[in-house]
C-alpha cells in the first residue's frame, strides 16, 4: 500500500475500467455492451498516459483509443448488417 497518495487519478481511472469490464460481462445485449467498451478504452488510454509521462505514451494512448474505436465501429456495423444495408 506504499505510495498511494500521489496515485489517486491513476487508481480512479483503473477502478472505472474494472467497473466497465464488470458491466460488459453482466450485460446480455450485444449492442448495449459497446458503450461500456468505450468507457473501458477511455480508462485504459488514460491509465497508459498516467503511468508513463513520456511523449511516446501519448502516441500509445491515441493508437489504443483509435484502434478500440475502430473495433467497436466494425462490430456494431457488422452486427447491424454491414455498411451497405442501411
Amino acid at each position: 500500500m506504499e505510495g498511494i497518495e500521489g496515485q489517486i487519478p491513476l487508481i480512479l481511472t483503473a477502478g472505472i475500467g474494472l467497473y466497465a469490464a464488470i458491466r460488459i460481462v453482466a450485460e446480455r445485449r450485444t449492442l448495449r455492451k459497446l458503450p461500456y467498451l468505450n468507457v473501458l478504452s477511455f480508462a485504459v488510454a488514460a491509465s497508459v498516459a498516467l503511468l508513463i509521462p513520456h511523449p511516446l505514451a501519448l502516441a500509445a494512448a491515441a493508437a489504443y483509443f483509435v484502434g478500440s474505436t475502430l473495433e467497436s465501429n466494425a462490430i456494431a456495423s457488422a452486427y447491424a448488417g454491414g455498411p451497405e444495408r442501411q
Binding site: 508513463i52 478500440s68 462490430i75
Partner: peptide, 27 residues
Amino acid sequence: IGIGLLTGGVIPFVAARGYLDVAIAVS
C-alpha cells in the same frame, strides 16, 4: 468484444514496462 476487453487489460502491463512501441503495435 471479450477479446477487446482482454486486450484492454494487457496493454497497461506492456506499457508500464516501457515497451511503448510494442503497445502501439499490439493495439
